[in-house]
Design a protein around this nucleic acid. Structure first.
Lengths: 202, 202
DNA sequence: ACTCTATCGCAAAAGAGGTTGCGTTTGTGC
DNA sequence: GCACAAACGCAACCTCTTTTGCGATAGAGT
């Protein structure tokens, strides 16, 4: 096994190549929130990044792949996981963060763009899958702490609870178009927290 | 005011024009579930409908508009609203129906396509909004009956409950890519029903 | 039946997104 | 420094989508 075989794809990580990569992903992320998925053109991404479009096409063969990486990089600036001392408080805070993130004009466009990209590319869909596994795992401590405090039954399903918390918010942004605000966040959190606390094995 | 001014858009509802309209919308709906949003081309829609592509372009200027109408027409075949006698039963049945609808291969492609289309067209987005208002209103009796039976507090928010029920299911289909099945439907329903029943004013 | 006009089919052309070949620049290892 | 290979810029090219002009067809009213 030679050195060239060992690491494919990051063969020349120093200097220009990396600058180009960063600039393109940054430009992609910006345009994503500004104009949305379909009106984002590779040509314009390249122009904003100060790069020729051929370069972009060579690195990222398809639009979804480009967006996939841009989203992945950009969302490493993680949403903090709240720790307020109660499940209800934590869930409300988390829901509020989600609302703040995807509720703004740009955030909504960005969120819808991601969904659109996922719809057109299985690769991005699986990439998103990994991202969400991470995100949900990161939020799991909220539930674990609640179990430790005795607020929730020990067999509580952290993923299910978090998904049920954020699901309706995303639903509104992606499909129903109903407005989202902190009031919604509070009420969903209350509904879910109450349900989780009183859960009984059937 | 002349007769031509009175009704614009349905000026010649008899015969061929209507046949064309139906055929195109039908073809669109089929292709939507078969190949998805981005690989659906106007040309192929026209071919399948036995119509020239110019005709399609003239009636529906953009792809999202075409899809918007196709979806609107096709979803009048309504999902039945269950009436099992208990909130939990109703919610489980409803969630199961949603899972069945959007969980199949074609259903998933179709659902993602709709989301993608909504992302690219504000018109479709508002069209979807109306559709969802209808859909949620149709499901409201589940909650009203439960209130009447004393299962739920009288100030229960029907929309919120239904949205929280179906939100996580759609979330998985559109974003996380996590599989959905009847088990998920049951557990979400249990969580939401429990939460709704024990809800207390804060 | 006859006329009028909305609607459609057809072909040609315009436009935009994406691809390819080749020369040049820029890291990287010696 | 020097040579080699990777990555980039450029321009021409190609393909697919969308538009446009015109003649043909078929409802709708008389």
């Amino acid at each position: 096994m030679t050195a060239t075989e060992q690491r494919v794809g990051e063969q020349r990580p120093g200097g220009r190549a990396e600058r180009v990569r960063t600039a393109v992903l940054e430009a992609t992320s910006e345009l994503l929130t500004e104009v949305g998925y379909d009106r984002l053109t590779i040509d314009e991404v390249a122009a904003r990044a100060g790069v020729h479009k051929t370069t972009v096409y060579r690195r990222w063969p398809t639009k979804p792949e480009l967006i996939a990486e841009a989203v992945r990089v950009h969302s490493d600036e993680n949403v903090p996981i709240p720790d307020t001392g109660t499940v209800l408080g934590d869930l409300q805070a988390l829901a509020s963060e989600v609302v703040a993130n995807i509720g703004s004009d740009g955030g909504t466009r960005r969120s819808r763009s991601i969904a659109a990209a996922a719809a057109t590319s299985d690769e991005l869909a699986t990439g998103l899958h990994e991202f969400w596994v991470h995100r949900l795992a990161a939020a799991a401590p909220i539930i674990e702490r609640a179990i430790a405090r005795g607020e929730l039954p020990p067999d509580s399903d952290a993923n299910l609870i978090i998904e049920t918390l954020v699901g309706p918010i995303w639903l509104r942004v992606l499909l129903t178009g109903e407005p989202i605000d902190d009031d919604l966040a509070e009420r969903v959190a209350l509904l879910v927290a109450t349900g989780a606390a009183h859960q009984q094995p059937t």
